[in-house]
């Protein structure tokens, strides 16, 4: 499964089962742009194992509100639809793979 751009309507279905990683971002945010290739890479690396999605907080303020995203980038990890962890700010790739590998 390639990277999915998630909307409020699609979110629950997309994250309902298995492991998901969702990157909350916006176009005016430099650190988000910087994290983008890392998230793209993880989507390829974990294809078929993890649902990797992105939420544009500008287009989807409801989702940002629902997850209490107060600073971007924020990456939220979900298992069967429930949040299990989150990382705020830009981190090295290993910080994300550690969470994914521990929960696969």
């Amino acid at each position: 499964m390639a990277l999915v751009h998630l909307t409020e309507e699609a979110f629950d279905k997309a994250t309902a089962s298995g492991l998901s990683m969702v990157d909350f971002w916006a176009s005016w945010c430099g650190p988000c742009k910087m994290l983008s290739p890392v998230v793209d890479g993880l989507a390829r690396k974990y294809e078929g194992k993890v649902m990797v999605g992105k939420v544009n907080t500008d287009d989807q303020p409801g989702l940002a509100m629902r997850f209490g995203v107060m600073s971007i980038p924020t990456v939220v990890f979900l298992k069967d639809g429930k949040e299990i962890d989150r990382k705020v700010g830009v981190m090295p790739e290993a910080a994300y793979t550690a969470v994914l590998d521990a929960n696969l």
């Binding site: 916006a26 005016w28 945010c29 430099g30 650190p31 988000c32 209490g68 107060m70 600073s71 971007i72 924020t74 705020v88 700010g89």
Partner: peptide, 12 residues
């Protein structure tokens, strides 16, 4: 940090 504290007005 990330729960109300921010260092970037443009971003957040």
């Amino acid at each position: 940090l990330g729960a109300g504290v921010s260092y970037c007005a443009t971003c957040d």
